[in-house]
Amino acid sequence: MSERLDVKKTYKLIINGAFPRSESGRSYPVATAGGDFLANVAQGSRKDVRDAVVAARAAQAKWWGASAYLRGQVLYRWAEMAESRRSELADHVGLAEGLKKKDAQLSVARAIDRIVWYAGWTDKVTQVLGGANPVAGPFFNFSLPVPSGVIGVVAHQESSLEGFVESVAAPICVGNAVVALASEHRPSPAVILTEMTATSDFPGGVLNVVTGVTAELAGHLVAHEDVDGVDLTGAGESSDDLARRAAGSIKRVYRPRPHDEENPLRRLRTFVETSTVWHTIGQ
C-alpha cells in the first residue's frame, strides 16, 4: 500500500473575512528555520494593504458597536478555536522559529492564554481607564476610553505567534480594527491563527493579515491617511523612517520600550482616545 500523499495548504491573505491571493498574483517561498521549503505564501501589494484598510474601517464600527460583553466572548471563542488547533500551531511555530516541540507548544500555550487575558479586558478597560470627573459646575462629566479606529501593525519578525498576538489582541480588545503585516519570513502561524477568526464570530475585517515583503508594504501602511495608529514592533531599522512617515497624519505610534512586559496596560492605553462628555445638570 502506497503512503498517503499530504494535502498541502495554500497560505493566502486574510482581508474582510475572505482569503484572497494577492491582487498582484505574486507569491514568495517561505522556508522553515532549517532551510527547507515550507510554502509559497501570497506576496501582498500596496493595493492589498489599501483594500484591507477599507475593510478594517467598515468593520471597526460594527466591532465597536457590539457590546463589551460580546467582544469578550468573541475573543474568548478565538482562544477556544486556537486551543483545538494547538498542535497545528505548535508545528508551525516550531518550523518557523526552529524551536523544539515542547518549547513550541509552550509558546502556543502562552499565546492562547494571552488572548484569554485580553478577552477578560473588554468590559473592564472602560472602568479602569475612564471615570467621572468632578468639575466645578452644574455638569455631569465623564471620560471614556474609545478606540482610535484602524491600527496598522508591523508584527514581530521573530516571534511569529506570541509577538503577533501581543500586537493585534490589545488594539482589537479595546475596539479597534487591525491591518497586520505578518512576519515576513515566518508568516504561517499568524495566518493560521487569523483563519480562526472566521469561526469565532468576528465581523469580517476586524483583523486583516497581509503577508509579503515588510519593507515594501510597511511604508504604504503607515502613510495611509485612514490609518489612525501604527505599531512598529517588527519594523526593525526602518522604524525611525516609518515613525516620521506616520507623522503625516498625526498617527499614534507604538514602539517597544525596554521593560514593556512589566506594564501590560501600556498596550491597552496606546490605541485608545479619552473622550470626555460634559452634560448640563438642571431641572
Partner: peptide, 12 residues
C-alpha cells in the same frame, strides 16, 4: 452637551 467651551482641571 447643551453647553460649549467649558474647561476644568479635572476634565481631560
Amino acid at each position: 452637551a447643551n453647553t460649549y467651551n467649558k474647561f476644568d482641571p479635572t476634565s481631560p
